[in-house]
Design a protein around this nucleic acid. Sequence first.
DNA 1: TCAATCTATATGACGCGTCATTCAATGACA
DNA 2: TGTCATTGAATGACGCGTCATATAGATTGA
Lengths: 126, 126
Amino acid sequence: MATTQDRQLVEQWRGIQNSYFRTASALERALEARFHIGLNEFEILDLVAECADAECRMKALGERTPMTQSAVSKVVDRLEKAGLVSRQTCTDDRRSLYLELTDAGRILHADAAVEHRSLLKENLGE
Amino acid sequence: MATTQDRQLVEQWRGIQNSYFRTASALERALEARFHIGLNEFEILDLVAECADAECRMKALGERTPMTQSAVSKVVDRLEKAGLVSRQTCTDDRRSLYLELTDAGRILHADAAVEHRSLLKENLGE
DNA sequence: TCAATCTATATGACGCGTCATTCAATGACA
DNA sequence: TGTCATTGAATGACGCGTCATATAGATTGA
């Protein structure tokens, strides 16, 4: 039996889906067009940039994003191939890796972040 | 320069991403486990069910979901192969198709919808 | 009525995310 | 110290969504 509450829930969920997709694809398109990176690549870059000088382990990234561990690993592959990030081995635990922005990565992130924030403002700021 | 507003926007966006992913994957897992259909399959089934007896054209579906036209086409492929839906040709425009739930589709949708609403309530109703 | 154009859907190539698995390094405990 | 379980990360197979295109049917206008 479809209750009124059910219909409201479905409406609410569709609203979330729409605003999520609208925003995500606006970000995706802009970042792809102007910086040749996908949204997930940017998100990881952004997280690495936030780490500042603290070591930024792969593990930590996995905890700050809904992406899977293996997705993170592949995103980092692409970022590394693009020369934006580099994997460094940890001396205190040789299973771990931490990430560093390259100079190119720092520059691209700075520019892309401006675009990113501005698109968020357009799409989220009502 | 990272302003306070920027940080708030990023926080807001991450919040949306998290709640979207959390909810979507809970739905995905449950529907997959109990009914052997994915979330998008269910969403289409749900839209077709909403059409009641009015003809439900593929075209119309495309307008009610963030999915691409070709994604809708493929989701319908799967639903049809699973025997939950059938494509009917329109007499007034032979390019168009409309969809009908099969009996199995109606039954599965009824059960899955209960589960779907209940998971939405858990995940969205605070 | 015949082109030229447009519209509804399908399809194939491709990229990416997920799952399951693997591998090496670490920890725990006897 | 040796075994067994655990952990951080990478990898390959696979499914799905997207983009660009194809195709058949409709529409327009001379």
